[in-house]
């Protein structure tokens, strides 16, 4: 299953970044496919991008909402939010584990040999604050002299935009280099921060700062496709804790908002206690070699607390 996931990640990377003519055109793709939503975080100013980024589009629509209404256009972001919601309702954060190019990039960075560290669990809440403020409230209510809101998350933080769009465009269009200023260095700082952090810890951007992951996480309890724990089979051996790239203790919180349904826990579980279910019906149980049904060994009396 892990091999299938890798292939799906590669497929989505290629589908959302399929414009390989950019070294010749030295610009971005301007075709009709950009009406299609990228399920994962993928900057639409990336020269290879063939789809739109839901976060970027939503901020643009919210920032221009007053001007649109004045012109008799009711662009409230319903199309973008509707698309994101349909994706969230089907698979939720499974997108992060299976279809996000920036998630794949972080996974590859984490394979670089180095000391590995955990992430303080409370940092997970930062991404919900970023979603509320930098994606919705600030673009909606902080306006410039012309009545436009800014794309706060893209402008000040998004490392995917710097990596996929900022750096390639600066390379391809030397005239843009004159515009480099504090804004760019600020974004470059966040990119370097998350790249370095991803080498040392698993998926730090997904876990702490991705507003798109935060949005999809809201569907974790009600999404159609999710992982299911069979409590009768679980022996609390905690094998699922050790392998989770998102720091989820699956047997303790099967509907955890951090779960990206990568199936690492299902593969690690020797007792077939974790399966993929679709709408309440079990769909996939990873084949296991027969394993003895063991209980977690009780600690010796002198080490028990």
């Amino acid at each position: 299953m892990d091999l299938i996931r890798k292939w799906v990640q590669a497929l989505f990377f290629l589908l959302t970044n399929g414009f390989w003519n950019f070294p010749i055109t030295r610009g971005i793709y301007k075709g009709p496919l950009k009406i299609v939503c990228s399920p994962g975080l993928n900057c639409y100013s990336c020269p290879a991008a063939t789809t739109y980024c839901p976060l970027g589009s939503l901020q643009q629509l919210l920032g221009g909402i007053r001007m649109a209404i004045e012109n008799g256009q009711f662009f409230f972001g319903f199309y973008v939010v509707g698309t994101m919601g349909v994706i969230g309702g089907f698979v939720g954060r499974m997108v992060c584990g299976w279809a996000c190019p920036f998630g794949l990039f972080q996974e590859l960075l984490h394979k670089i040999p180095s000391p590995k560290f955990g992430i303080w669990p409370h940092l997970r809440y930062v991404k919900y604050v970023l979603l509320a403020f930098m994606v919705v409230l600030l673009p909606l209510f902080v306006l410039d002299e012309f009545g436009f809101g800014s794309t706060w998350f893209c402008k000040y933080l998004c490392p995917a935009g710097t990596l996929e769009a900022g750096l390639p465009l600066l390379y391809m269009q030397p005239s843009l280099r004159a515009n480099i200023g504090p804004l760019f260095y600020n974004k470059l700082f966040f990119l370097i921060l998350f790249v370095g952090w991803a080498v040392l810890a698993s998926r730090p951007f997904c876990r702490t700062a991705c507003p798109l992951g935060a949005f999809y996480a809201l569907f974790s309890k009600i999404k159609l496709v999710k992982l299911h724990l069979d409590p009768a089979k679980c022996t609390h051996c905690e094998a699922c804790h050790a392998v989770c790239p998102m720091g989820v203790r699956f047997n303790e919180s099967p509907d955890d908002m951090e779960c990206i349904s990568c199936l690492a826990c299902s593969k690690a579980c020797k007792f077939n206690a974790i399966s993929l279910e679709i709408g309440g019906v079990s769909a996939v149980n990873q084949p296991k070699q027969s394993a003895p049904r063991l209980k977690k060994p009780t600690p010796a009396p002198d080490t028990a607390h």
């Binding site: 793709y29 100013s45 739109y52 629509l61 794309t151 900022g166 465009l169 804004l183």
Partner: peptide
């Protein structure tokens, strides 16, 4: 709304990418 999304997505947003 999709036409507006398409219009935005086919233009390079320089401020969005830090330039």
């Amino acid at each position: 709304e999709p036409s507006r999304v398409l219009e935005q997505a086919t233009q390079i947003c320089l401020s969005c990418i830090g330039i």
